[in-house]
Design a protein around this nucleic acid. Structure first.
Length: 286
DNA sequence: AGCCAGGCCCATT
DNA sequence: AATGGGCATGGC
């Protein structure tokens, strides 16, 4: 459980909330870590997450936003208990026990995950930070994520300066569609997951995987299973099936994990990526 | 130095 | 519907 005060939230149950797991499992890009403090930015809000001995403090002027952002009223014990029955997920959950799926801003997720395609996380973070500093509203010590009307002023050259490479023209096209309301975010929110997925894919730079990330992180639709290179590697290492497509993997695992698919995917992604980072690919046994 | 990254677009089949 | 080549550019 947690305690909500005027300018901070105190979390005592640290086995369902680990800042490192939450921010480094690939769902979130705007954070900086120093010692035991994460400084995080979402939309036009800021918070500092402070790890103490047996508790965690979320300091912010907008505690209501971050209470929702961290999805503090969802019981992760139940989710993990259910997913732990799966032999493949068990070690992944043990490793990333403190992961939570954040409730992030939809427009911010669309832009961020268009940038993410065939890219690495460091470079994605740098591009997003540049875009915020160049086009976002300055709020004291930080820059907000720009709105669509702020970003519509950026052209292809500007996005290349941000380091987004060939995705620059996708961004220009998609931002224009959203800002003109030719693509309707409100309507998107009313659609069931499969319909919303199809609609998202009509956006330039949005394919099946990016759409799934937008659904999962920007719309909190948990019945999706984004398959990227890491998940593909993971799947093939377990099932040694080299000729299966990413779409088929996604379909299969959605059917397997159903309404918990999004959670399952995050545990697996974080687990798989941890091996490569340490260069201990072969440590994983079966 | 050279391969790879939270894949997508587009042309073929 | 499924497959494959091309793609910008920084990280490691």
């Amino acid at each position: 459980m947690y305690k909500k005060l005027k300018n901070k939230i105190i979390i005592n149950n640290t086995k369902d909330f680990c800042p490192t797991h939450i921010f480094e499992c690939g769902q979130f890009f705007r954070y900086k870590k120093s010692k035991n403090v994460f400084e995080i930015l979402s939309k036009n809000y800021q918070a500092k997450i402070i790890e103490q001995n047996d508790s965690i403090e979320i300091k912010s002027d907008n505690v209501d936003y971050f209470e929702e952002f961290f999805d503090l009223n969802t019981n992760y014990q139940l989710i993990k208990k259910s997913l732990n029955k799966d032999a493949i997920l068990k070690p992944a959950i043990e490793f990333g026990y403190g992961i939570r799926i954040l409730k992030q801003d939809l427009f911010e997720m669309i832009i961020s995950f268009i940038i993410s395609a065939n890219n690495n996380i460091k470079r994605i973070q740098n591009s997003i930070e540049y875009i915020c500093k160049t086009y976002g509203t300055k709020c004291n010590e930080f820059y907000a994520f720009p709105t669509s009307s702020q970003l519509v002023k950026a052209d292809e050259t500007s996005f290349k300066l941000a380091g987004t490479g060939y995705r620059a023209r996708y961004l220009v096209d998609t931002i224009s569609k959203i800002n003109s309301n030719e693509f309707d975010l409100q309507y998107l929110n009313t659609l069931p997951t499969n319909e919303a997925r199809k609609y998202l894919i009509t956006l330039s730079g949005v394919g099946p995987k990016v759409a799934d990330c937008i659904l999962l992180f920007g719309m909190h639709r948990l019945d999706v299973f984004p398959v990227d290179t890491w998940i593909e590697q993971s799947y093939k290492s377990y099932f040694s099936n080299d000729n299966i497509s990413r779409n088929s993997i996604s379909k299969l695992l959605c059917e397997k994990y159903k309404e918990l698919a999004g959670y399952a995917q995050q545990y697996l992604f974080y687990y798989q990526r941890s091996f490569i980072k340490k260069g201990t690919k072969d440590e994983k046994t079966k």
